[in-house]
Design a protein around this nucleic acid. Structure first.
Lengths: 218, 218
DNA sequence: GTCTATAGATGGATAGAC
DNA sequence: GTCTATCCATCTATAGAC
């Protein structure tokens, strides 16, 4: 750890590479198949690493899950906070509803762009909200901090609305985001006869903002 | 079945009662804990029936799940179709957006009323969409029929909107409904400092209709 | 139809050699 | 730090007595 070793003989993976590979494969399998439908054997098998790697690097299957969850939600919430901060500065402390909602919607939608590495991370996070472990649920309930900044900004931007109303409308907006799962896109595609394309995420983001902004100003 | 038997000697449950009890307990446990987190032993234990009851009455655990799913989605979609039909007649074949959305939103929200037997059924259905078995997923994807009637009605009510736009906005509305899980209500409650109350479902329904109608007419 | 006992399969975790 | 072999728990499903 502290001393640099000259050469690693003939290991298939370096230590970090193994850990990262397990992390990436686990995220993808969990996102696509669900937590309880993926076994440690599935992960290590697809990652071409040893069965014991998960427990060695992460402690347990649940701890691996929680680690992925912490990393991804941390990245996402920092990006949202940064956008909200920028919008606040740009609008001299009083960002309008649409700018606030954009800070909430844009990060996950941009991640979902086809070709983006993080496309699968959004699916992971959405699924984590619905079927996460008890530890993840607890973290979600407590991590109300970053959301409350959005709630306060929205209250300030809508002084004519009751606070209660603002919170409910924020809840509706979160529902719009959480419904962006692969399976729901597929169903919408079938329903619409193929005219809905989720590949153009910037266009979809605009659609979401149009809808949500109008709902907020109702 | 055909002849009325005079007396059932000393069985703890009649045949139908056992089946119904398993059905009800399974629905509740699945809705609250998730499908993979509930074992046949959990169900039969809580229902105070034999371990073999599930396989005897339903064939398998997955078949039990699918049966609950079929019954509940059937009931829900019939109620929605009936309301859409009534709205169509009431408005002489051209129901406005709000009446169409009410036919979509009201049934699950009314079911969710505290004290209603079906309160738990809504949670079951929402969870089924996210983590259902392959059979349920396939049924969902194919059961696009009842939704297409809503889509057509909305297209007719919004002749100025592109069909594509109508489908996306319908997708957003469905997201609003699917986000009404116990866990999300709890989180919103924590976020708002306790001022949001999901107990008043008629008020919540009005809030959802206000938001979604404005979004549709944007 | 009910119930007990058990088969048969799977999964998480770990010991111990290398 | 890696890998194999294995332990032990859990689960679904079923056979067979009553």
């Amino acid at each position: 750890m502290t001393d640099a070793l000259p050469e690693v003989p003939a290991a298939a993976h370096s230590e970090a590479a193994t850990r990262d590979c397990v992390f990436a494969v686990a995220e993808r399998l969990f996102a696509v198949q669900g937590f309880k439908n993926v076994s440690v054997r599935d992960i290590t098998g697809e990652a071409r690493v040893n069965l014991a790697s998960v427990n060695y690097h992460f402690g347990s299957k649940d701890a691996l899950l929680f680690e992925i969850f912490k990393v991804r939600t941390g990245e996402l919430n920092r990006e949202r906070a940064r956008m909200l901060h920028e919008a606040t500065e740009r609008h001299l402390g009083k960002p309008p509803v649409r700018a606030i909602l954009e800070a909430l919607f844009a990060p996950p939608m941009r991640w979902a762009n086809p070709g983006n590495d993080r496309r699968i991370s959004v699916q992971f996070i959405i699924r984590a909200r619905a079927e996460g472990t008890p530890a993840m649920r607890e973290a979600l309930t407590q991590d109300v901090g970053y959301l409350s900044r959005f709630a306060e900004a929205l209250c300030a931007a809508c002084p004519n609305l009751a606070r209660e109303t603002v919170f409910w409308r924020l809840h509706f907006c979160l529902g719009m985001i959480h419904n962006n799962r692969f399976a729901e896109f597929d169903r919408l595609h079938a329903l619409s006869g193929g005219i809905t394309r989720e590949g153009d995420v910037e266009r979809l983001l605009t659609r979401m903002l149009d809808f949500a902004e109008a709902g907020f100003l109702a």
